[in-house]
Design a protein around this nucleic acid. Structure first.
Length: 440
DNA sequence: ATTTCAGTTAAGTCCACATAGCTCG
DNA sequence: GTCGAGCTATGTGGACTTAACTGAA
């Protein structure tokens, strides 16, 4: 541990901004994300208290610690004693919430931690947040969804918070939105309510975390992250790498299956730094296969060494990738890169490996099938041009001028007859002419 | 293990023309 | 500031070409 805020480099980071790929203290989070309307839209969540480099997605009530997916898997997925811990999904937020708003969002923040645990949450309560800054409002559509994961995997939706917030805040200038975590998690209990975030019991069905249904409802058109908008908004030309980074590190890893199987350490390091495909393909792993998962996940410096770090990504060029193909390639895949590569590098062999293997093979099969049938739809910007192109005459796939349809010029303004003949027609015509000449 | 070759796949190119977007008077 | 003329760049789809990839011999 011992990391500092990426912005002030002084305070202990508490929240993680996916858009900025930055770990920030609350003060800097407020400063940075109050700069403009765009930055206010950045979705932030708690920082994992184990690795201090990944966004936390679940809160362990027993351990009173916020964990990212990887650390949750390490802590709960491999230990039968810890697997029964009650865990609560951590919501993300945007805007500039006050400390009171954060307390409503994360009530566990102000619970006193048990002895020997991280004190980051205690410090969090002591952090000064300039309350004179722009007032944050709870959006009328803000939907606080909390889940109490028990052994049966029953999730419940808590709308009380939302109602309370709605009554206590002015919804006219909605800035802050409470979002359920982006991860679609399987729900062992088999709930039919698809609107609810799913939760997974990692030790039993870990691979399903990344199965196809995770991406089925994800449409980049809805997210609207195209380059044009970025140029319009920021006035700068954006490399495709940045677009990939915006989409999240996990989705950018599919080319990792090309990496040598021994690169387990670096495989784990990549999601930790939201690395990009280009980096993965070009940067040689520096880490040895023998490194432990713990050291890998906790050693932030190593991650940066292996995959250049998030600060360097903007200078990398991905000119060989097109927006459509590359972007969709990594967003529409139906299986996790970890899935394709084999067991997660941080997952030691366990008795359930046979079950996981079969599940994984099924997922890989579904991924391959989906990839085979996948078709990147072209986005038509001008329907009128498309309509015209659809009805325009072509000769061998090329547009032809008016009057040159069917190989002949029909326009009276043209002084000559235009013949559009392919080679076979030319041979036939030449042969016929030769016969005529011979007869004559 | 390496090379060669045929088959497959993906990406790029070409065409004419309507239209968006810009400058200029 | 507004308007119109003139100009340039862009986008549209199908056929074709080219390059890259794959698997077998």
């Amino acid at each position: 541990m011992g990391y500092n805020c990426d912005f002030c480099e002084h305070q202990r980071p508490v929240v993680y901004c996916r858009s900025d790929a930055a770990c920030l203290c609350l003060s800097c989070d407020r400063n940075v994300h109050s700069a403009n309307a765009l930055s206010r839209r950045h979705s932030r969540t708690l920082l994992c208290e184990r690795c201090s480099s990944q966004p936390a997605f679940v809160r362990c009530a027993e351990e009173r610690v916020s964990l990212c997916e990887n650390c949750d898997w390490i802590g709960h997925g491999t230990s039968t004693s810890n697997s029964t811990h009650t865990r609560q999904t951590i919501n993300s937020y945007s805007g500039c919430p006050s400390s009171a708003e954060l307390s409503s969002l994360w009530p566990f923040f102000w619970q006193s931690p048990s002895p020997g645990e991280s004190t980051s949450e205690q410090e969090l309560g002591l952090m000064s947040i300039p309350e004179n800054m722009e007032r944050t409002s709870w959006g009328p559509t803000g939907n606080t969804i909390s889940q109490n994961q028990n052994n049966t995997g029953v999730a419940e939706v808590n709308n009380d918070n939302n109602a309370d917030m709605g009554s206590g805040w002015d919804g006219s200038s909605s800035i802050l939105e409470i979002r359920s975590p982006p991860q679609a998690l399987d729900q062992p209990g088999g709930s039919t309510d698809t609107s609810l975030p799913k939760f997974s019991c990692p030790q039993t069905k870990r691979p399903s975390l990344f199965e196809d249904d995770l991406y089925d409802d994800f449409n980049m058109d809805d997210v609207d992250l195209n380059l044009e908008n970025y140029e319009e908004l920021f006035g700068v030309t954006l490399n495709h790498s940045e677009e990939l980074f915006e989409n999240g590190g996990i989705d950018c890893l599919f080319r990792m299956k090309d990496m040598p199987a021994a690169d387990s350490n670096c495989r784990g390091a990549v999601p930790a730094e939201s690395s990009s495909v280009g980096l993965v393909n070009t940067v040689q792993p520096e880490c040895s296969n023998g490194a432990s998962a713990d050291s890998m996940m906790s050693n932030k410096t190593d991650s940066i060494l292996c995959f250049t770090g998030r600060q360097a990504h903007s200078s990398l060029s991905f000119s060989g990738l097109t927006g459509e193909s590359s972007g969709g390639d990594y967003q529409d895949c139906g299986a996790s890169p970890m899935l394709l590569m084999g067991e997660p590098p941080w997952c030691p062999p366990c008795p359930e490996s046979s079950f996981q293997s079969s599940t994984r093979s099924n997922a890989v099969m579904r991924y391959k099938e989906k990839k085979k049938t996948r078709k990147f739809e072209k986005r038509v910007r001008y329907a009128s041009r498309k309509a015209r192109a659809d009805v325009r005459k072509r000769v061998r796939g090329r547009f032809v001028k008016y009057g040159k349809e069917n190989g002949c010029l029909l326009s009276s303004s043209e002084p000559y007859i235009y013949l559009q003949l392919d080679f076979s027609s030319f041979i036939k015509a030449a042969a016929a002419a030769a016969i005529v000449i011979a007869i004559c």
